[in-house]
Design a protein around this nucleic acid. Structure first.
Lengths: 203, 203
DNA sequence: CCCGCCATCTAGACGTTGACTAGTTTACGA
DNA sequence: TCGTAAACTAGTCAACGTCTAGATGGCGGG
């Protein structure tokens, strides 16, 4: 309500506008080249305004990370149920990363933001509850199994692929779209698992 | 030879000294906070000297990346033979990443350096030859199989774990040493593979 | 109705950075 | 020995993050 005024002294939604601008900037130039003054310029305010809302650069990254973990939970949570929820969650994780590269580039880089921020811890813990919860329900796992290994394997796999893709390390080696690659990777994991089983048996 | 003179006008090994300083600096503060002036300070030369050897900041990152790919080939190549060479190579990849965090933080970030540098392309292609070559020899693969999926799965897995670890996303969730985790992950991949097989069969 | 308070935002300054330029020093081959 | 090119220094510039003082205006208590 009341969002017609073009630019009053008090912006009204400046905080969120700055976050949006920051995410757009991260998507455009990467987290390393994020400039607080450029964010202010995008939002049409003075160069000092962002500091009032976020204290410093790490504060902006913190806000992005919080939004990112919430977005991730919203995207992945709904599909992460049932015996294959963990597998579907992995696909959703990758979809999330590709759909929100700006958020993704920040959320798992604690060196960028204020780790320990309570709001952040909350959002992150919620996301991890989805990860671990769906792992416990994975097909074939006896109840009360320690799922650390499964979580690490699945998370590393999804995270690794998303990271490699977003950093354009795969562009030359694959086609431009990651859609049809899912099947190939699925196949690869199955083959990897078999080889690992065999290697374990040989010893 | 002739390296007794403490600090002649011509440094003699300045280029390599600057690379070493840069790697140390990346390990200390991360690639984002790398400062050319700080590198010069570490090497005891004027702030403009690095530009002469590397042109610009991306030039320094390029030099680090080249060294990184060569180091990776040297570390992983020797163990990447036989039916389990691909699996052992994955472990070696992670060992390399943890032993050389500065190099690793740069080598797969083409946005940081001058992609297309011929020397870099050479070093990178050599590393990828090891990756693909060992995948083709993986236990259980029929000859002339398309190994894209296997490569992606294995690389994503190793890369994801190393990245998550180095960005300290796992510190709170695991112990401080990654040594004993290898077995757990191996187990996790096997379980993942079985679940994926089952899911594929259900459809 | 208005008046003062305080969050919001502006504007200027400071030290540091990456990049550019001109100039100085030194190694080395003709 | 001399001159040329590589190696390095030193000064400059715009842009950056952060800090500070001050201007602006929404809003609740009188």
């Amino acid at each position: 309500m009341a969002s017609d005024t073009p630019k009053p002294y008090h912006h009204g939604h400046l905080r969120q506008a700055l976050i949006d601008a920051a995410v757009a900037e991260v998507e455009a130039v990467g987290p390393a080249a994020l400039s607080m003054r450029e964010i202010a310029r995008r939002a049409g305010v003075s160069h000092g305004a962002p500091a009032h809302h976020f204290r410093d650069k790490a504060g902006i990254f913190t806000a992005i990370a919080i939004e990112a973990f919430r977005l991730a939970s919203q995207t992945i949570g709904p599909v992460a149920h049932g015996p294959y929820g963990f597998l579907d969650g992995g696909n959703a994780y990758i979809s999330f990363a590709l759909a929100h590269p700006g958020h993704f580039a920040v959320m798992l880089r604690p060196d960028l933001y204020h780790d320990g921020d309570p709001e952040l811890s909350l959002a992150r813990d919620e996301a991890f509850q989805i990860l671990y919860g769906s792992a416990r329900n994975l097909y074939g796992l006896p109840p009360d199994t320690d799922v650390t290994g499964v979580v690490l394997a699945g998370w590393s796999l999804s995270h690794g692929f998303a990271t490699l893709w977003l950093n354009s390390n795969l562009k030359d080696r694959l086609g431009p779209t990651p859609a049809d690659i899912a099947d190939q990777i699925r196949d690869g994991v199955i083959r990897l698992g078999r080889a690992l089983e065999q290697q374990r048996g040989d010893q």
